[in-house]
Nucleic acid binder design. Structure first.
Lengths: 199, 199, 199, 199
DNA sequence: CATGAATGAGCCTTCATTCAT
DNA sequence: CATGAATGAAGGCTCATTCAT
């Protein structure tokens, strides 16, 4: 790995790219996905053109930020699998992770919602990855007879999206309501396949 | 009450108000809740100031439009009750009505979502009315042991909101994906209490 | 003229409109048709939106400015006709007027060139008007056997456009070269019909 | 000629230069002279700096591209002379060639127009070359009494420029109107001297 | 000598809200 | 009470040119 041979005219470029992503992450978290890209560029100490060179589309930037958080998602997944839970409980947990992930930035559900329809975009691919994992957990639950067979990962993904959206303020600044987090909604969503037997 | 002495003081106003609402309804349906108010005013044949006088806030206009559709909702409710279904089936039906109602205009879920947090506004009161009905059906189901006791009408309202949102394109023109209408999502939502036991 | 009865909520609007046109005329003359509209608005002392309200398109503004100069053109035409010249001489004179008119603002030939292809726009209609006059003079010359019968007003208009263009700097700032005005070109253009009898 | 001893010092440079010109030719033809130089560099597989080193100015690049097409022009000229036409017919043919040559790339007339005023630049020298040939044909016609004596090659060059410009859409994509090609204009231009005998 | 990343000014457009008439 | 003109901030995007590597 002592690969310090490659000509590296990209040293600062990569640094800039990383800084942009870093700044964007914070900006998204603080002001939502709608924050003016100019302000991101400024805060990152680069020109507008530089940001644009790296991320021609806002979506591209969002995708890059999410990519940076991918390890977290992988870790969560591994954690769930390591616990060797019942299939339905595992799915349960995964959905909770999903919703939480979607709520990271204001407006993220909306972007993901749009990306699901437009595969092939970087963000669309991120969705596909996540949906695949969901399918994985869902499949196990279905094989165990713990989930309805006519449901797909995409359904759950969209359901989680709606849940995350409903529990998030759409307009930046609106607070995540009065204690009514998405938990109640999530509970409903879980019930969908975990069989909400009151008994 | 003493007949017609005044030339046309309030007559015009009411006519204008009605026309604005009518035009807005069409505009909302066609272009979503984001239509420039200017264009609504123009299409209604009134000045921007007039529209503004009647509806100081876009929310007010939305509320007025929804008010006009309230009878439909009442009728639906009456219809469900007239059928004397099992409590859970009735709730089921009501939720379907709810989601459908929320999907009438692009962007409506978002406005309702915001209004729920800000009661006292006209739109917030509309929400309360609808939530009350939901509580009515939910209560019956709960008393019949057909629904979890720890869920509230607000939860279902928010759930329906998320469902309606997820099944609606945010940007006008984007089609409700590949056949995956909100029905699948709705099914999940219903399952939450309707007991989705595959067996 | 004592017509001060009509409700006139447009008094200032018209004043603004006039001022914008006036300022634009100067700006076009000084910096060419490419001046930033923002600067025109600023110089006219109005907001960007106001300018935009009056002239949604740059073309609309150009058309309005030209409209203001229409009387000049009419006067020129009347003057030519008053002289009762031979048909070919009259056409000759009119073409000179045309070229001169086209050279008023840097970039005008280009806008007119585009407008000819897209009738129905305000600028396109201006073109049509001018072409009609050209057809008038050309027709007379043709009937007198002094001009080729297979040429149309549009041909001469385009020819004049090319002539005006060739004698005007395209990039603002470049001076109208070294004494080589459009006269030489115009001479060529005139010859096209003045002596072009195939027979 | 003595085979390949030097690794590739000048070889690359020349190869790059050639490739850039080649790519630029295609880009100019497809998108006009306004293509972003960045894109040309990218398509040529070189860095922007490299392109810039070879051609400090866009004009320089244009000149280089035209230089590449010079043989065609020479061949045309030779062809005309080989036919031993009457002087006026020869000039006629040459002008047609000229206009056609000017219409090769969108925006070319504009660049040439500017270059005429600024001799000494590479593009200006290209113009001079072409004007010289025009003078050659024109002179012959004048000596034969077939062309007005007070016209110069530069006049015809500018006339051809205007003709080429007027018959070319400025915005890429706009078609050369409804069948009205530059032929009609060219016809006018030809007439200017072909029959313009003052006598 | 090549690379290609960074710069950064500049323009157009939209629309909610106010207020003179 | 209606009108509709004016406001004016704000944001996304491009691209020629430079210069560090």
């Amino acid at each position: 790995m002592s690969a310090a041979r490659t000509r590296a005219p990209r040293r600062d470029a990569q640094r800039n790219r990383a800084r942009i992503i870093d700044v964007a992450e914070q900006a998204f978290a603080a002001e939502g996905l709608d924050v003016p890209l100019d302000s991101v560029a400024k805060r990152a100490g680069v020109g507008a053109g530089t940001l644009y060179r790296h991320f021609p589309t806002r979506e591209d930037l969002v995708a890059a930020v999410l990519e940076g958080r991918q390890p977290d998602l992988d870790r969560e997944r591994a954690g769930i699998e390591a616990e060797r839970l019942e299939p339905d409980a595992a799915l349960d947990r995964w959905l909770a992770v999903l919703v939480s992930w979607m709520r990271a930035y204001n407006g993220l559900p909306g972007s993901l919602r749009a990306a699901v329809d437009a595969r092939s975009t970087p963000l669309g691919m991120t969705c596909e990855t996540v949906i695949a994992v969901t399918d994985h957990f869902l499949g196990a639950a279905q094989r165990a007879g713990a989930a309805r067979p006519d449901v797909q990962g995409l359904d759950l993904f969209l359901g989680a999206l709606g849940t995350a959206w409903a529990s998030t303020a759409s307009s930046p600044g609106t607070e995540p309501p009065d204690g009514r987090t998405g938990d109640d909604l999530l509970r409903l969503l879980r019930c969908g396949w975990a069989v909400g037997r009151p008994g």
